[in-house]
């Protein structure tokens, strides 16, 4: 009897590990080896093969490093905040039972369903001077005959703003669907109880809905944060390499645009490691601050 209970207890203790192990075996087979290679490479001198911090020195003294860091930070702070609030707003709207809600959800998800080819064609023809954005403004009478807006000419700030807006347009749905999934697990009774006790929409949202949504919010934000720090494709689609350096764009640059430069392997490895450290720290700090680790700990 006790033996049985003991084995049941042991089973219960092992179960979570059994459930988690496949993930790590999978990573071990398909992912760990190239990553380790890259990590080791970042600490080696390519000519002598000895331990060296040269990669890191190179990156930290790269004149593009600080601008890349700054641009990335600006994009991340603005886009993650903005995308989160808009996505939450959309999720809350769609959660309401209104006429057309289901179709609205479908439409709201459309931007994420479009392949890069279509999105590329969309913004290329959209933002170019003789493109559809100016055409549209022309048709509604906003742009007088002969006048044009040069969307793609201008300061770094203007380009940053464009990048943030275009990126937001495409990724908000992916944040929204996670939040929406989380919202639906909140028992209606709890929110109803909130109203019964005299709460209005916003107090119920603040006191009941959002706290219950916390794990989902943490997931949505941390995933978005990780992706936003690694933004690059949209940047080079809009302005090309080097004009508006961001961190991962630098990795791609040394990988693909100047792969044969003597310093390229070190630069790429160094930037890769620094990005990894920055992303991990950002994620860790966010999860700490939002209390993801304190919940149920030791419970």
């Amino acid at each position: 009897m006790t033996a049985q209970r003991k084995s049941a207890h042991l089973g219960k203790r092992i179960t979570p590990y059994l459930l988690v192990i496949p993930v790590f075996i999978y990573y071990l087979i398909f992912w760990v080896q190239p990553v380790l290679q890259q990590v080791i490479r970042s600490f080696l001198d390519p000519t002598t093969g000895q331990l060296s911090l040269e990669s890191y020195r190179l990156v930290l003294t790269d004149p593009d490093f600080i601008p890349a860091l700054r641009n990335t930070a600006i994009i991340v702070v603005i886009s993650v905040t903005m995308e989160f609030f808009i996505a939450l707003f959309l999720a809350l709207i769609i959660k309401r039972d209104f006429w057309g809600a289901s179709i609205f959800l479908f439409l709201a998800m459309l931007p994420m369903a479009l392949p890069p080819v279509a999105v590329g064609a969309m913004w290329k023809t959209g933002l170019t001077t003789n493109g559809w954005l100016n055409s549209l403004l022309h048709y509604v009478g906003f742009l007088p005959e002969g006048e044009k807006i040069y969307w793609l000419a201008g300061s770094t700030w203007k380009m940053l703003a464009l990048i943030i807006i275009i990126d937001a347009w495409q990724v908000i749905p992916s944040v929204m669907i996670i939040l929406l999934a989380g919202l639906q697990n909140i028992p209606k009774e709890l929110e109803e109880a909130g109203y019964v006790f005299g709460g209005n929409y916003f107090t119920v949202l603040r006191k009941i809905t959002l706290p219950l949504l916390r794990p989902t919010i943490q997931t949505a934000v941390v995933l978005r944060l990780i992706a936003a720090i690694q933004i690059w494709l949209i940047v080079i689609v809009l302005v090309g390499f080097s004009r508006l350096p961001v961190l991962v764009e630098r990795i791609v640059y040394y990988h693909e645009e100047v792969p044969r430069l003597n310093i390229s392997p070190q630069m790429a490895a160094g930037y890769t490691m620094i990005v990894t450290v920055i992303v991990s720290l950002a994620a860790l700090i966010y999860l700490r601050l939002s209390g993801a680790f304190s919940r149920r700990e030791g419970g």
Partner: peptide, 19 residues
């Protein structure tokens, strides 16, 4: 130069659009 010249990666499109 065309105002958006820094964003041109290939002159085909701008020439065809008459930019």
């Amino acid at each position: 130069f065309m105002p958006t010249v820094l964003n041109v990666d290939n002159c085909v499109d701008p020439l065809m659009r008459e930019e």
